[in-house]
């Protein structure tokens, strides 16, 4: 059993084929990193897993996608998303809600917490796991625009965690933040894998080496190589993976 099983998945966006017969398996409770150059289909792949691809006008998905044992393409997308948290490339906390409410809203919607006390506990737990609690515990009623970019991204991680998801999708979560915040986010990600399976997209080889248990290399919509991180970093078998790891792509 795998947290995510993709078999021969192809995605067409407005007639253009973005994913070309992708097959990959994400074991439970691991950090699975997807690497690849810009435009290789990494974000699209994540959006297939939680069916956010449905929001893209004219998108068509072929092949089989199993997420946490459910057939993702025939399962109710709203029910599916209750099991999957997601952090996007650009920090996108809800600007009209306070730090507290940004996290609480996810817990309430998914029925994770109902009473005020339960919500308080989940908010604290999620902010602690996102390594943000110490920085915001006395300013929970501030708004996201009062936080730095890195703090905003960790708030998004806390929002995703407050759903108590079984799968966490991270779409280049450190691409727009400073190295200190990036490192904190990485620490948070690694510490999470006992409770949640993480699928992370990144184009930083060093970051992948620090956090990944498994790696898949995506190029032009195809998985050109995948396997345990150590094996792939030490002995990449394809030319594309070698170039990507050397930062030449």
């Amino acid at each position: 059993m795998f947290a995510v099983e993709m078999n021969n998945v192809s995605v067409y966006l407005g007639g253009r084929q973005v994913l070309k017969g992708v097959t990959l398996r994400v074991p439970y409770n691991t950090v699975f990193v997807i690497m690849g150059p810009s435009g290789s289909g990494k974000t699209t792949l994540l959006r297939v897993i939680n069916r956010l691809i449905d929001l893209t006008e004219g998108a068509r998905v072929e092949g089989s996608v199993k997420v946490l044992g459910f057939d993702a393409m025939s399962y109710d997308p709203y029910e599916l998303r209750k099991l999957i948290g997601m952090v996007f490339q650009v920090p996108n906390p809800f600007p009209h809600l306070t730090i507290y409410d940004n996290v609480a809203v996810a817990a309430r919607i998914n029925g994770v917490a109902k009473s005020r006390r339960e919500v308080d506990e989940v908010v604290r737990w999620a902010l602690e796991r996102a390594m943000l609690w110490d920085e915001v515990e006395d300013r929970l009623h501030d708004y996201p625009h009062q936080l730095s970019g890195g703090q905003r991204q960790r708030l998004c991680l806390a929002r995703a965690l407050a759903m108590k998801p079984r799968l966490l999708l991270l779409d280049e979560p450190t691409a727009n933040i400073d190295p200190v915040n990036a490192r904190k986010l990485e620490e948070a990600i690694v510490s999470l894998k006992d409770e949640v399976t993480v699928v992370m997209v990144t184009h930083f080889p060093h970051q992948a080496a620090r956090v990944a248990d498994y790696v898949a290399v995506l190029y032009d919509g195809r998985v050109v190589e995948q396997g345990p991180a150590q094996q792939l970093f030490l002995r990449p078998t394809t030319d594309i993976a070698q170039k990507l790891l050397r930062g030449e792509m």
Binding site: L55, E79, R81, K82, F88, N92, P95, R159, A160
Partner: peptide, 18 residues
């Protein structure tokens, strides 16, 4: 409104109306 907020709402399992 930037599309990223709509996506964020859907990603935490909000329905369209929500």
């Amino acid at each position: 409104i930037p599309a990223m907020y709509r996506e964020a709402a859907f990603s935490i399992a909000m329905g369209r109306w929500g």
